[in-house]
Amino acid sequence: MSSPVTFINVIDVDPSKQQEVIDILNEGTEQVISKRPGFISVTILASADKTRVVNIARWESADDVKATQADPVAAEYVKRTAAIATPSPGIFAVVSEFGA
């Protein structure tokens, strides 16, 4: 079995469109992403200056991420986001983790 992975998408956005991007990500997560095989969790962060949104999704495997990206329904949310912002996605493995 493969190790869980983290999908991180740093999205640059005009401040006037930040909430719209957040709404698209929330809708996509509730309607599609959270129901996909291998889904663990999503955290969405908004920069205080309103110029970025960060989408952090934990998945059971990179294959689960790739299968979700290939899903035409999920791809619609990607297209909607890319129409109003500049996404920069990537798949990451945890190499260090620290806690209190």
Results as ranks from 00 to 15, higher is better:
residue 26 N to C: 06
residue 42 V to W: 00
residue 89 P to M: 05
residue 54 V to N: 05
residue 56 I to H: 11
residue 23 D to W: 07
residue 94 V to C: 04
residue 39 F to W: 00
residue 56 I to M: 13
residue 90 G to F: 09
residue 17 K to F: 06
residue 37 P to I: 08
residue 60 E to P: 04
residue 53 V to T: 08
residue 88 S to V: 09
residue 25 L to R: 01
residue 70 A to P: 01
residue 64 D to A: 15
residue 78 V to T: 06
residue 99 G to M: 02
residue 80 R to D: 00
residue 21 V to R: 01
residue 34 S to M: 04
residue 19 Q to L: 02
residue 13 V to F: 04
residue 2 S to Q: 09
residue 70 A to E: 05
residue 64 D to W: 11
residue 40 I to E: 02
residue 19 Q to N: 13
residue 36 R to F: 05
residue 29 T to G: 11
residue 3 S to Q: 14
residue 99 G to H: 08
residue 90 G to P: 11
residue 22 I to M: 13
residue 35 K to E: 06
residue 11 I to N: 07
residue 91 I to M: 10
residue 12 D to N: 15
residue 30 E to N: 15
residue 29 T to I: 14
residue 29 T to K: 08
residue 92 F to S: 12
residue 66 K to R: 12
residue 27 E to K: 14
residue 33 I to L: 10
residue 16 S to E: 15
residue 64 D to Y: 11
residue 22 I to T: 09
residue 85 A to C: 03
residue 56 I to A: 05
residue 30 E to C: 03
residue 16 S to G: 07
residue 53 V to L: 03
residue 83 A to V: 10
residue 6 T to P: 00
residue 21 V to W: 00
residue 87 P to N: 03
residue 41 S to T: 09
residue 95 V to P: 00
residue 17 K to Q: 14
residue 62 A to I: 02
residue 23 D to Q: 15
residue 30 E to Y: 06
residue 63 D to Y: 03
residue 45 L to W: 05
residue 46 A to Y: 00
residue 14 D to R: 08
residue 73 V to E: 13
residue 74 A to T: 04
residue 85 A to W: 04
residue 12 D to T: 15
residue 27 E to L: 10
residue 22 I to H: 02
residue 53 V to A: 15
residue 82 A to M: 10
residue 14 D to T: 05
residue 17 K to L: 13
residue 1 M to T: 12
residue 56 I to D: 01
residue 72 P to F: 07
residue 58 R to Q: 15
residue 85 A to F: 07
residue 12 D to W: 03
residue 31 Q to P: 00
residue 7 F to A: 14
residue 71 D to R: 13
residue 54 V to E: 07
residue 97 E to L: 03
residue 92 F to V: 08
residue 25 L to D: 02
residue 89 P to D: 07
residue 100 A to F: 13
residue 18 Q to D: 02
residue 23 D to P: 05
residue 5 V to L: 11
residue 28 G to R: 09
residue 6 T to W: 00
residue 47 S to Y: 05
residue 52 R to L: 06
residue 17 K to S: 14
residue 30 E to H: 12
residue 37 P to H: 10
residue 9 N to E: 10
residue 77 Y to I: 09
residue 59 W to A: 06
residue 40 I to G: 00
residue 67 A to F: 02
residue 93 A to F: 08
residue 43 T to V: 12
residue 83 A to I: 07
residue 81 T to M: 15
residue 85 A to H: 04
residue 48 A to P: 01
residue 73 V to P: 01
residue 65 V to A: 07
residue 94 V to I: 13
residue 67 A to R: 12
residue 28 G to A: 11
residue 41 S to K: 07
residue 22 I to A: 10
residue 75 A to C: 05
residue 7 F to H: 14
residue 66 K to G: 02
residue 17 K to V: 06
residue 67 A to W: 04
residue 10 V to S: 09
residue 90 G to R: 11
residue 10 V to D: 04
residue 17 K to G: 00
residue 65 V to Q: 03
residue 97 E to N: 07
residue 74 A to F: 15
residue 18 Q to R: 13
residue 53 V to C: 12
residue 46 A to E: 02
residue 65 V to N: 03
residue 12 D to Y: 12
residue 86 T to R: 15
residue 32 V to W: 01
residue 33 I to A: 07
residue 78 V to M: 11
residue 72 P to G: 05
residue 42 V to T: 15
residue 47 S to R: 03
residue 30 E to V: 08
residue 96 S to C: 07
residue 14 D to F: 03
residue 50 K to N: 05
residue 73 V to W: 06
residue 89 P to N: 09
